[in-house]
Write a protein that binds this DNA or RNA. Structure first.
Length: 298
DNA sequence: AATCCTGGCAACCGCATGACT
DNA sequence: TAGTCATGCGGTTGCCAGGAT
């Protein structure tokens, strides 16, 4: 299948965005809404490729982006979700209101992976922690090896083995896109895709955006479930597609549909949630968790 | 004070996939 | 059915600030 290049590279700005470019992009999107990224730069008067505009908007300019440090709750949630979903940053980001997949990916790569690696070192080898110098050297060599992998081997099979050595077990069910026969104007996607759950510690829904399912569509088989510490369940709501905290960031987070087929699934969803909680309690059973996660994603 | 090194993060790249023609 | 478009995702890179030497 042929594929056109994302954009003509000649004559386009690259690198860091200027405040002027930011304001042009924001103004345009405020006036016309998201979407049509390919034609957006031209219409907005930007010398950027559409992809670049989209990325800038999604990761930096969107008004619902939460700035600041990752909280301990978010930190914990990221670790749990990563153990369940692997490097599927968009899915993980979907449960952390205001956080972007890029931000979570960076946070994982710069903080969590090292922390887990260190704790793994401590627990598995009983080695005394290395000096700061040694840790830095290790991190550097990891970064450099990652760089080396790029050359001539973009999706290098060797990478898996490197990561397998350096990182804790990661579960990587194949990414599946869920689409529906419905469609919404893209302008609607913003309101409906932002702040999909309450505080991070309260977990949230399956990522509607990542699943390419607008909020106002409610296809069978797409539903939310709580992800978090099973011990804390008392203070969480299981959101079977509708019943979730929508107070985050003061945004409206629920986009109710006209018809609510999800209601018909309450029994099934409750059972699934119970099953999920049981699997979480038996944390050793990665195989079961894997298959459960896969079943949710299909 | 100068230089080197490292970590963090914004941005880019290539690929996958569904929609459209 | 095949080609093209549009978009999203995950991996990777490059720049820069700040700490170490």
């Amino acid at each position: 299948m042929g594929r056109a290049p994302c954009c003509a590279k000649v004559g386009l700005h690259r690198g860091p965005w200027t405040p002027r470019e930011d304001s042009l992009l924001v103004n345009y999107i405020q006036a016309h809404g998201e979407g049509h990224w390919r034609s957006l730069p031209k219409k907005a008067g930007l010398l950027r490729c559409g992809k670049s505009c989209r990325l800038r908007w999604m990761n930096y300019l969107r008004p619902d982006i939460k700035r600041g440090n990752i909280t301990p709750d978010e930190d914990d949630l990221i670790i749990r979700l990563h153990s369940l979903l692997g490097n599927r940053w968009s899915l993980i980001a979907g449960r952390l209101p205001g956080r972007t997949d890029n931000e979570i990916k960076n946070y994982w790569n710069t903080h969590l992976s090292k922390r887990l690696l260190r704790s793994q070192d401590t627990h598995l080898t009983h080695r005394s922690p290395g000096s700061n110098k040694r840790r830095k050297a290790t991190a550097k060599s990891a970064k450099e090896s990652a760089k080396k992998l790029k050359h001539g081997n973009k999706k290098s099979p060797g990478k898996a083995s490197v990561e397998a050595m350096e990182r804790p077990k990661v579960h990587l069910p194949k990414a599946i896109r869920v689409t529906t026969s419905f469609s919404l104007p893209r302008n609607d996607s913003f309101d409906c895709n932002t702040a999909v759950s309450g505080s991070s510690s309260q977990g949230g829904l399956l990522d509607r955006e990542a699943a390419h399912v607008p909020w106002s569509d409610e296809p069978a088989g797409v539903f939310g479930f709580f992800v978090g510490d099973p011990q804390d369940c008392g203070q969480h709501q299981f959101s079977n597609g509708r019943n979730y905290d929508n107070t985050a960031n003061g945004h409206r987070t629920d986009c109710p549909s006209e018809d609510e087929p999800a209601k018909d699934q309450n029994g099934t969803l409750d059972k699934l949630y119970e099953e999920y909680l049981q699997l979480l309690r038996a944390e050793d059973d990665h195989v079961q968790l894997d298959s459960f996660a896969e079943s949710l994603l299909m």
